[in-house]
Simulated scan of single mutants.
Amino acid sequence: MALNVGQDFKKRWLDAPNAVRQSFFDDLNRICDLLQPSTNIEKWIDNDRRALQVAQLQVDQAYADLKAQLLEEARIRKQLALEKSLADKRAKQQAYNLQLQQDELQQFYAQTQSLNALRQVIDDEIAQQSQRYSKNPEYPAIDFSNPRSRIQDDEILSELESVRLRLELEAETSIEEAVNAFRNKLKAAAKDEIDYILENSKFSAEI
């Protein structure tokens, strides 16, 4: 008598749960008992019917457990994939934010250097103007004894100091605007990262 076990029996046998394989062993053992001459057929049939019912329950439970295990493994794989994807995106976002911060710091440093250089130029020009107008002019035709014809050095210096203060205020305003713009960009980048994390953190849903 040939035993037909079907195609891919080895793979199906290895993939089957232990309870399923054990049920096949039990079936074969009962068949071997049936072949014994001393076996009571009616009793064997009754025992076989009950054994088949129990075996079917065990097989159903084994496949249900296997399905639950496969679903859980799939859920874990999906969760790990989402976590890895989120971690990669967060790493890229952090790298982008760091690069943005470095670029902004470089721009801020360059602007500060430029404004400091401009302030130095202004200081030098003011100093030159002050030195020029602080000297007594060598013009014999001017009568310095006449108050109306005397150059008012104090007024000139006061006007130059006003110009100096105005230019310094404009330079400080430009620096403050650059700092505020840099802070606003950092806040916006941090808010985008927080919103992204909150939006993509719901990966524990049921499959």
Rank of each mutant, 00 (worst) to 15 (best):
residue 157 L to I: 08
residue 155 E to A: 14
residue 163 V to K: 12
residue 152 Q to P: 09
residue 157 L to K: 15
residue 160 L to M: 09
residue 174 S to Q: 15
residue 174 S to W: 03
residue 177 E to G: 01
residue 166 R to Q: 15
residue 153 D to S: 13
residue 179 V to T: 03
residue 174 S to D: 07
residue 172 E to R: 11
residue 168 E to S: 14
residue 165 L to H: 12
residue 163 V to P: 00
residue 164 R to T: 04
residue 179 V to F: 01
residue 158 S to N: 14
residue 156 I to R: 14
residue 164 R to W: 00
residue 177 E to A: 07
residue 167 L to S: 11
residue 175 I to D: 01
residue 173 T to N: 10
residue 172 E to K: 04
residue 165 L to Y: 07
residue 167 L to F: 06
residue 156 I to Y: 09
residue 165 L to R: 15
residue 169 L to S: 10
residue 166 R to M: 10
residue 167 L to E: 09
residue 166 R to S: 11
residue 168 E to H: 10
residue 169 L to C: 00
residue 170 E to W: 00
residue 151 I to A: 14
residue 163 V to L: 06
residue 154 D to K: 11
residue 159 E to A: 12
residue 155 E to K: 10
residue 175 I to V: 04
residue 171 A to R: 07
residue 160 L to E: 02
residue 163 V to D: 02
residue 160 L to C: 05
residue 155 E to W: 12
residue 155 E to Y: 14
residue 172 E to D: 12
residue 170 E to M: 07
residue 173 T to I: 08
residue 156 I to H: 10
residue 152 Q to A: 12
residue 154 D to N: 10
residue 158 S to R: 10
residue 177 E to N: 08
residue 163 V to G: 02
residue 154 D to C: 03
residue 172 E to A: 03
residue 169 L to H: 04
residue 176 E to V: 02
residue 161 E to F: 03
residue 176 E to W: 02
residue 172 E to L: 04
residue 161 E to N: 13
residue 160 L to V: 05
residue 173 T to P: 00
residue 160 L to G: 04
residue 176 E to S: 04
residue 154 D to E: 06
residue 158 S to W: 05
residue 156 I to S: 09
residue 164 R to V: 00
residue 156 I to G: 04
residue 167 L to H: 06
residue 167 L to T: 00
residue 153 D to K: 15
residue 178 A to D: 02
residue 163 V to I: 10
residue 177 E to Y: 02
residue 157 L to D: 03
residue 172 E to Y: 01
residue 174 S to A: 15
residue 180 N to F: 11
residue 166 R to D: 07
residue 174 S to T: 12
residue 173 T to D: 14
residue 157 L to T: 02
residue 161 E to D: 12
residue 163 V to F: 03
residue 177 E to P: 02
residue 166 R to E: 13
residue 173 T to Q: 14
residue 172 E to I: 00
residue 179 V to G: 01
residue 178 A to R: 10
residue 159 E to M: 07
residue 179 V to H: 02
residue 153 D to N: 14
residue 172 E to C: 00
residue 160 L to Y: 05
residue 152 Q to C: 05
residue 171 A to E: 01
residue 172 E to S: 00
residue 162 S to I: 05
residue 175 I to P: 02
residue 167 L to M: 06
residue 180 N to H: 09
residue 161 E to V: 07
residue 153 D to R: 14
residue 152 Q to Y: 06
residue 155 E to V: 13
residue 164 R to F: 00
residue 158 S to M: 13
residue 168 E to F: 11
residue 169 L to D: 01
residue 165 L to V: 15
residue 151 I to N: 14
residue 157 L to V: 03
